[in-house]
Amino acid sequence: MKQALKRSLLGLGLLLASTAWGQFPGPATCTRSANLLACIDAQGNAYSVNTVGSTIYLRGFDKAGQRYWAQTNSRYGQLTFFTGIATDGEAWVGYNRRVGWTTINRYSSSGGSSAKFTCNRLTGC
């Protein structure tokens, strides 16, 4: 789960920092509308991102773990707080903080994993 959660957070952090999609491993097929982005990648993972005002709703399916997950993000200026839960009962909380071209990410989960990592638009994570 730690890798799947980190990938999810990494994707969100990069999305929030307006990083180019070309840095993600493997191509994904996406459909987009005004408020919704839905994608399926080459490994069979699926996710959607829906925005309503300053709230971002993420839903997805992790192929490797065979589980569904949901995450809600609330944005307050340069700071985004998030909470999530998966079908196996794991829950997580954390935040992303944007400082210039850098995003500082921190999370912890009920499964015992936690991390703090920094991403930059020029150098990646």
Rank of each mutant, 00 (worst) to 15 (best):
D41M: 02
N73C: 05
G22V: 02
Q71M: 13
I56P: 07
I104P: 00
P25A: 04
V93H: 15
L16C: 03
W21L: 09
S18P: 01
L58S: 11
A34T: 08
Q66V: 05
A70W: 01
D88E: 03
L16R: 12
Q78E: 08
W69D: 02
K63M: 01
R75S: 10
K63Q: 11
W101R: 15
G53S: 07
A64S: 13
P27S: 11
P25K: 09
Y57E: 12
A38N: 01
G77E: 06
G22R: 07
R32L: 09
W101G: 15
F81D: 10
S54G: 04
T19F: 11
T83H: 14
Q43I: 09
A20F: 06
R32Q: 14
G100S: 10
G22C: 00
G26F: 05
N73G: 08
G100A: 11
I56R: 11
R59E: 05
T72A: 08
A46G: 03
S48Q: 11
A34G: 04
Y68H: 13
G26N: 09
A17F: 00
G22F: 00
A17V: 03
P27Y: 01
E90A: 14
A38L: 01
Q78L: 05
A64E: 11
A64M: 09
V49A: 06
R97L: 13
A64C: 04
G53W: 04
E90H: 09
S33G: 06
A91F: 01
F82T: 06
T31H: 13
G89Q: 02
S74E: 05
Q71K: 09
I56V: 15
W69E: 00
A20C: 10
S48V: 00
I40K: 14
Y76E: 10
S54I: 01
A38P: 00
R75T: 10
T51W: 04
T55S: 07
T31S: 15
F24Y: 10
L37K: 09
N50S: 12
G60P: 05
G26R: 07
G53L: 05
V52Y: 12
F61H: 12
V49G: 01
A86H: 06
D88N: 13
R97K: 13
Q23R: 14
D41S: 04
A28C: 07
T29L: 12
Q66H: 12
N35G: 11
N73F: 00
E90G: 13
F82N: 07
A38M: 01
T29W: 10
T80E: 09
V52K: 15
Y76S: 15
T31R: 15
T87H: 03
G89A: 03
S74R: 10
T83S: 14
T80G: 05
L15C: 05
V52G: 15
R75K: 08
G65T: 06
F24M: 11
T72H: 05
R97M: 06
L58F: 08
C39N: 07
I85F: 00
G44V: 09
T72Y: 04
V93M: 13
A64F: 08
G60E: 03
G22P: 00
Q71I: 02
D62W: 13
F81H: 15
A38D: 02
G26C: 04
P25F: 00
R32Y: 04
A46V: 05
G77S: 12
I104A: 03
G53R: 01
Q71E: 08
